[in-house]
Computed example of a mutant assay.
Amino acid sequence: MVSVTIGGNALGFSSNLATCVGLAVKDPTGNPCQTFLTSDGTDRLAQRVDDIVPTIADALDALRQRTPYAEVLVAGRLSRPVPGRRGRLHQLRRTARRR
């Protein structure tokens, strides 16, 4: 068995968290993080998820080539439901199952 863990660092989790904490201090009753992440009309977090799918697929392809008979388990924070991201998470899960 081979396990692959995908975490928030691939999506810039630490920098987003630091930014959102700083914004929340200035605006504790609003939704400054959501406003920041969508300020240009694009959901930046959703875009990062979309952008990383090919990288994950490539990594799984390389893993499969090196270990053709291994059972591959993909785990990590991305396997948890994220509100508004079901489609993208489903895309990652489909990518993992195809490999």
Rank of each mutant, 00 (worst) to 15 (best):
L73W: 04
L78A: 04
R48P: 00
L89T: 07
Q47C: 03
L37V: 06
G8L: 05
L17I: 11
T19W: 01
T55I: 05
K26M: 11
S15D: 13
D61H: 10
L45T: 01
P68F: 07
K26A: 15
D51P: 03
V49E: 02
G12S: 03
R93S: 14
Q91M: 04
L45A: 01
P54W: 04
L11P: 01
Y69Q: 15
T19Y: 00
T42M: 10
D43M: 03
G30N: 11
L73A: 10
D58V: 02
S3T: 13
V4R: 05
R80N: 10
M1A: 14
Q47L: 11
D43L: 03
P68S: 07
P83C: 03
R97P: 00
D58M: 08
T19E: 11
R88V: 00
P54D: 02
P68Q: 08
A59V: 11
R94C: 09
Q65W: 08
G76D: 07
D40Q: 12
V72G: 03
S14K: 09
N31K: 15
V82D: 07
G12H: 05
R64A: 10
R94P: 01
F13K: 09
R98P: 00
C33N: 07
G8R: 06
T95H: 01
D51R: 11
N16A: 12
V72I: 15
A75K: 09
N9A: 12
R77V: 05
R80L: 15
S14N: 12
P83N: 04
V25C: 04
D51A: 14
S79T: 15
R85G: 02
R94E: 14
G76R: 01
T95M: 02
A46L: 09
A24C: 11
A75G: 08
R93N: 12
V82H: 09
T95Q: 03
R99Q: 09
Q47M: 08
L45Y: 08
Y69H: 14
N31Y: 08
L78M: 12
D61M: 05
L23G: 05
V53I: 12
A75S: 13
T67C: 12
R48K: 14
V2Q: 13
A18N: 09
I6K: 02
D61S: 13
R86D: 14
R99E: 05
P32G: 08
R99M: 07
V2I: 14
L78E: 06
G7N: 10
E71V: 10
V25L: 15
T5K: 06
R93Y: 11
Q34C: 03
N9G: 15
T67Y: 15
G30H: 08
T42C: 09
S15Q: 13
G87Q: 09
L11A: 05
Q65P: 00
S79P: 03
I52L: 11
P54K: 05
C33R: 03
L92G: 00
V21N: 09
L73T: 10
V4Y: 05
S79E: 13
T5C: 12
L45S: 01
V4A: 11
N31C: 09
I56L: 12
